[in-house]
């Protein structure tokens, strides 16, 4: 049975009465075990969607259901039990004075027994490859390491849904790669719903589905492979496709592709087998 884990039903939202709508009639759903990427330019309403998903904000119109519960001020704490969120700024979500204390924060809030806490901290730090840094203070960690700790903090609460709101935006290329690797590993290890928000198309390659936002509306709902074909249209709403997709789209004039390659490796494979297929 495929259950819809997250449902946005005609959601509209604005931050205040006298301000423009930030989200306009947004409807989508996310199935069990699905990884959905939300893409869009700055200010297109991505973070707003994330905050609505775990009750940091509430819709003005429409309804949101997370794991069968409508998100309302009454259910918000139950919803947050199931939803873990990683924000953009590595520094401003690190609460503890050490790595261990920070991962513990969410567990402490949930009143979890100390012995279970110690196990969960250990496990979750191991899965983000940060278990050697148990007693490090945040100022002795790189941005990427802090984000990995933030992910560990989310994993420790064993959520059903993890939202990454531009978790890589403030990192250098190495940090980004590191986080994306961690996320990909996670997807393989656990059956967790994942929503990753980004404006970097390189980061949607692993996703099952992509929702592209523009000016507070859903502009397109598709799969990564299809999206990469729409280079021109994406450019119009301020998004740039990865280098692999650009090369592919240029080459399309002179050769046929079986399918749109997602990664550099897929592209290379198609290129070097191209001649033998003819």
């Amino acid at each position: 049975m495929t259950l819809n884990q997250v449902i946005f039903d005609n959601v509209s939202f604005r931050y205040a009465e006298d301000q423009p709508w930030v989200l306009k009639n947004v409807s989508f759903s996310i199935k069990q075990d699905e990884w959905v990427a939300i893409l869009g330019h700055n200010g297109s309403g991505k973070s707003t969607i994330a905050k609505l998903m775990n009750g940091l904000l509430f819709p003005d119109e429409g309804a949101i259901y997370v794991h069968g519960m409508e998100v309302t001020p009454e259910t918000v704490w139950d919803v947050r039990e199931k939803v873990g969120m990683v924000f953009q700024n590595p520094d401003n979500q690190f609460v503890g004075t050490t790595v261990r204390d920070d991962v513990a924060f969410g567990l402490e809030n949930r009143g979890i027994d100390r012995r279970i806490m110690l196990n969960r901290i250990e496990d979750s730090l191991t899965s983000v490859r940060m278990s050697d840094y148990l007693f490090h203070e945040p100022h002795r960690l790189s941005g990427g390491q802090k984000q990995r700790v933030a992910i560990a903090g989310v994993l420790a609460i064993q959520p059903e849904l993890i939202i990454l709101d531009e978790a890589t935006a403030m990192l250098d290329p190495r940090g980004r790669k590191d986080i994306m690797m961690t996320v990909n590993d996670l997807r393989e290890e656990t059956k967790v719903n994942l929503v990753s928000i980004t404006h970097d198309l390189n980061e949607i390659v692993g996703a099952d589905r992509v929702i592209v936002m523009n000016e507070g509306e859903i502009w397109l709902e598709t799969v990564p492979r299809e999206l990469f074909k729409q280079e021109e249209a994406l450019r119009q709403i301020g998004l740039d496709v990865p280098f692999t997709a650009k090369v592919t789209n240029r080459l399309k004039d002179i050769m046929d592709f079986d399918q749109q390659p997602l990664t550099q490796k897929e592209l290379l494979d198609q290129l070097w087998t191209f001649h033998s297929k003819k």
Binding site: L56, Q93, V95, F105, N109, G153
Partner: peptide, 11 residues
Amino acid sequence: ELAMAMEARGY
């Protein structure tokens, strides 16, 4: 931002 992150983490 920290206050929001803390709330999101169930504080």
